[in-house]
Design a protein around this nucleic acid. Structure first.
Length: 423
RNA sequence: GUGGUCGUAGCUCAGCUCGGUUAGAGCGCCAGGUUGUGGCCCUGGAGGUCGGGGGUUCAAGUCCCCUCGGUCACCCCA
């Protein structure tokens, strides 16, 4: 007996109609991004491990979730991408495009972690980045692009959380005061948070453990330690969001999981999803990353949105269903010969969506298939039609009668019938 | 990586507590009722190594152990 196989852990097969929503979602995002002057980039699925290590040696993504590739010569250190921002920055450092460089992308990322609903080892993101300017208006444009996209696909329960992590001296001062504060209260922290503290004190702020709640709530806040320049930048971002009427919540505890973030950080959370996996997207500014990857010292800002989670949120909000069938006409034939073959090909060549049955099934069976196809019209060829040089045009979604039409006029008659039933 | 929980037709689930003829239902699929017509209805059919392996027993879907997978929480993130 043959062995049976299943999709690897943390991956899944996406079949229609889910796969159809998926494609439409990505296409809608691409359209929105292109309308805002962003152009697509297609980075490789894997990179030198060192590229991803720049997202932060202290992050879980780098420390334990990397999909390493075993090279034939045994010493090439490469890994499947856990995200695409690092690749985009590497692309910039390599090709030095003119700035501002506005790009978008979509595709799979890989993280080796314990799967859950809405969290997979292979997961898809769409994202956009702007490199080469630190104008706060760009932060606003980036956030607005994601925000309008959520609106466009019908999500109403998404909220924007906003924070600034500062940079340079202000950031260093803040980290010092944070270490001091947690140092005093280390005994009251959970064991896990104590460990996190030694790796990256910032991330303790992100703890969801109840016993940490009080300590975290009383911790010093980055927004109180911003340098005058970073304060001005943050004020600029807020003013821009206000001008566009995009509501946001200031979330001082929002630190995000990647170490490269500076100044503006943000996250989109869906109230329609369970709390643990409610982030449908996030991003921020990363002004030092391109330089870390051997490029010029240019600023950058961007976001990534999780395709799987957006669709889960759409399910929860009952919006963005699968697209209607692309099949307009279903050809039914009970005669031997190439009539069904030719009719179907002729319709398709004329730009009319057409499908048919195979295996010489009974008319009843073929009509069932026609019904299921979602087509609005059935085109029936039987012996009577064949002899008289006609085909039977039968509406499937309307109460109007079927009619005989001359075979030679079929494309024009089908087109007229489709136009008539357009709603 | 840690802990909980679940796994029986393609799908959703009964049966397991208390081991005992050929493992069921609904939906879906196929065919017929209707020798030229889908949806509604009726009838029939196909489809299962009860996730996999081992153990206990005269006997295991049912009890025990291991394992794989889903799911939930933590960690972290999309």
């Amino acid at each position: 007996m043959a062995d049976t196989f299943q999709a690897p852990r943390g991956t899944r097969d996406i079949l229609a109609p889910e796969s159809e929503r998926w494609h439409v979602l990505v296409a809608r995002f691409a359209h929105a991004a292109r309308q805002a002057g962003y152009r697509p980039v297609i980075p490789p699925m894997f990179e030198d491990l060192a590229v991803f290590q720049r997202v932060g040696e202290s992050t879980d993504v780098v420390r334990k979730e990397m999909f390493l590739l075993e090279a034939r010569d045994g010493d090439a250190r490469q890994a499947l991408r856990p995200e695409q921002t690092a690749s985009v920055c590497r692309m910039f450092a390599q090709h030095r495009p003119a700035t501002p460089w506005k790009v978008f992308y979509s595709g799979s990322n890989f993280r080796y972690e314990r799967p859950q609903k809405g969290r997979y080892r292979q997961f898809d993101q769409v994202g956009a980045e702007v490199l080469g300017t630190d104008d706060p208006d760009v932060d606003v444009e980036i956030i607005a692009l994601a925000w309008r996209f959520f609106e466009q696909i019908g999500l109403r329960q998404v909220s924007l959380q906003l924070n600034s992590l500062g940079d340079g001296e202000g950031r260093a001062n803040y980290l010092a005061s944070l270490r001091e504060y947690f140092g005093v209260h280390v005994g009251a922290l959970s064991a896990q948070s104590r460990e996190t503290l030694s790796i990256n004190p910032l991330r303790v702020l992100d703890s969801k453990r109840p016993e940490d709640g009080e300590i975290v709530a009383g911790a010093p806040r980055m927004v109180d330690h911003l340098s005058p320049q970073d304060r001005a930048h943050f004020d600029g971002v807020r003013a821009g969001l206000d001008a566009l009427h995009i509501p946001y919540e200031l979330t001082p505890r929002l630190v995000r999981g990647l170490d490269y973030y500076t100044r503006t950080t943000f996250e989109f959370a869906s109230a329609a999803l369970d709390a643990a996996q409610n982030a449908v997207g996030g991003g921020g500014r990363y002004d030092g990353l391109v330089a870390d990857l051997g490029g010029p010292g240019v600023a950058g800002v961007g976001f990534a949105l999780g395709v799987d989670r957006i669709l889960l949120a759409c399910d929860a909000e009952e919006t963005f269903g699968p697209p209607p069938s692309a099949v307009d006409v279903f050809v039914v034939s009970t005669v031997a010969g190439t009539d069904a073959l030719e009719l179907t090909a002729e319709l398709r060549a004329a730009g009319i969506g057409a499908d048919r049955a195979f295996d010489s099934r009974s008319m009843k069976s073929q009509m069932k298939a026609a019904d299921r196809s979602g087509a609005r019209l059935a085109l029936i060829v039987g012996s009577q039609e064949l002899e008289s040089g006609n085909v039977m045009l039968r509406p499937l979604r309307a109460d109007t009668h079927q009619q005989l039409v001359p075979r030679v006029e079929v494309v024009a008659r089908v087109r007229a019938a489709l136009d008539a039933t357009e709603s």
